[in-house]
Design a protein around this nucleic acid. Sequence first.
DNA 1: ATAATAGTGTCTCTGAGACAGTATCGG
DNA 2: CCGATACTGTCTCAGAGACACTATTAT
Lengths: 266, 266
Amino acid sequence: MSESERPAGYDPRDYDPVSVTVDVVALTIRDGALHVLLVRRGNPPYAGMWALPGGFVRGVRDAEDLPDAAVRELAEETGLNAEQGQLERIHLEQLGTYGTPGRDPRMRVISVAYLAFAPELPDPKAGGDAADAAWVPVGRLGLTDGGDQAPGTTRRLAFDHAQILVDGLERARGKLEYTPLATAFCAPEFTVPELRAVYEAVWGEELHAGNFHRKVLSVPGFVESTGTTSDRGGRKGGPRPKLYRAGDARLLHPALLRPSREEEIR
Amino acid sequence: MSESERPAGYDPRDYDPVSVTVDVVALTIRDGALHVLLVRRGNPPYAGMWALPGGFVRGVRDAEDLPDAAVRELAEETGLNAEQGQLERIHLEQLGTYGTPGRDPRMRVISVAYLAFAPELPDPKAGGDAADAAWVPVGRLGLTDGGDQAPGTTRRLAFDHAQILVDGLERARGKLEYTPLATAFCAPEFTVPELRAVYEAVWGEELHAGNFHRKVLSVPGFVESTGTTSDRGGRKGGPRPKLYRAGDARLLHPALLRPSREEEIR
DNA sequence: ATAATAGTGTCTCTGAGACAGTATCGG
DNA sequence: CCGATACTGTCTCAGAGACACTATTAT
């Protein structure tokens, strides 16, 4: 810290004002597809455009920690509430901080982005400052790796939120490889095919059912059997799959690596 | 963003003031041991204690991007300068943001931490607000996984910098596994034994020389031969090792996994 | 009945790690 | 000369992926 050249009673209000926000990339699986929670902005700038839910961190009065701010914004702008335990099972982790000058046209804003993973949740109710809120399929956003929109895509995200979303997706894809995070997208009891559907939705590619099954069961602590069986077979037939709970592993060893990432190596 | 309930000409100065700093975990290898760059604080709080180099982000006047602020603080407080290219070959990446209320006893400060990797650099000259600056062997800090100090350790770090350092070390250890980052600790031309020494210093365990050698050469794009040979053998004898440059790979595939991390899995 | 699915068996190939062996260097 | 070191060869074992096969379910 290099603040020591300033007087001891130094008040940041007199100095270089920076605003701090949190933005949340909240992901879930719906109908077998990866969805992100977006809100439609009610006011300028970017009025009418979709954006990640987020808002100012309470800095001094009612000072709150950054993860608390993320949860609060998630609740405020979507109507999800803690009383019903809807926020209980949400995995939250810090994604990164975005502070390039000019990213907000009005003033200097530094945003701490969080990544949230949730099992299937109800449709959000617009609240707080959001004119609207919805789970949006990630595939329909036409994102490219650079965070820009693909040609012909009309939907855009406010600020640099497209880049934040791309970074969040890449983080999520990687985390599925070496952590049991995929179970956070599932109900408390789930089947191996359901777990595979999570991997396929997030990674965007089909996996070999048989090898995936054997692999999941062979990783120590990934899943543990409940001894029970689902009450229905697959959607188009097949035996009733067994039910599992999340195990106690924090890391998957060996990891479940994504097939064929040759293009990302160089 | 939830600022829309505020008037359009809203000035953050009138609102909840938050200060933003950057702190840098700068790592290098000296004499076969991992070192971190620390500065001794000249002013309260924590006067006389060691801390990570860092300082305020210029927010509005001369607004600077976050990585630029990290490089500037690194230069200011250590005397390393860009003219001599000392900052050229430094790898810099964002580590995380620390904003728990109370982490700075004076006011609400949110700090964006950066992680820097450098080849061997000269001793720093204290500058800026630092009373002193030095490369300190990480092993002598007595850090535990939780970021607290081990019993009997007198040296402590200011603020929550011990935790930031622990997080940075863990990030560095992981990054060596699946990226060619270790080459950033080496001179432009290096030998396989030198590269192995980097892994051993960061991971804190000895590696099998023969298997390491074969593994490094088998990963596509990790290193490329210069065709030349070092002018001296190992420190206690042995053939002259061949010289290599960093290759063009961005990811190591297959990865070089750390041996025996059983304890971290559960 | 038919098609789709859950789950298992088997084979092959890659790669990690243990170990041995050879050539080359410093002291 | 001696010991340490740079590499290379070889063997074994674990694991990933392709494929095949059976049993069970929805339609």
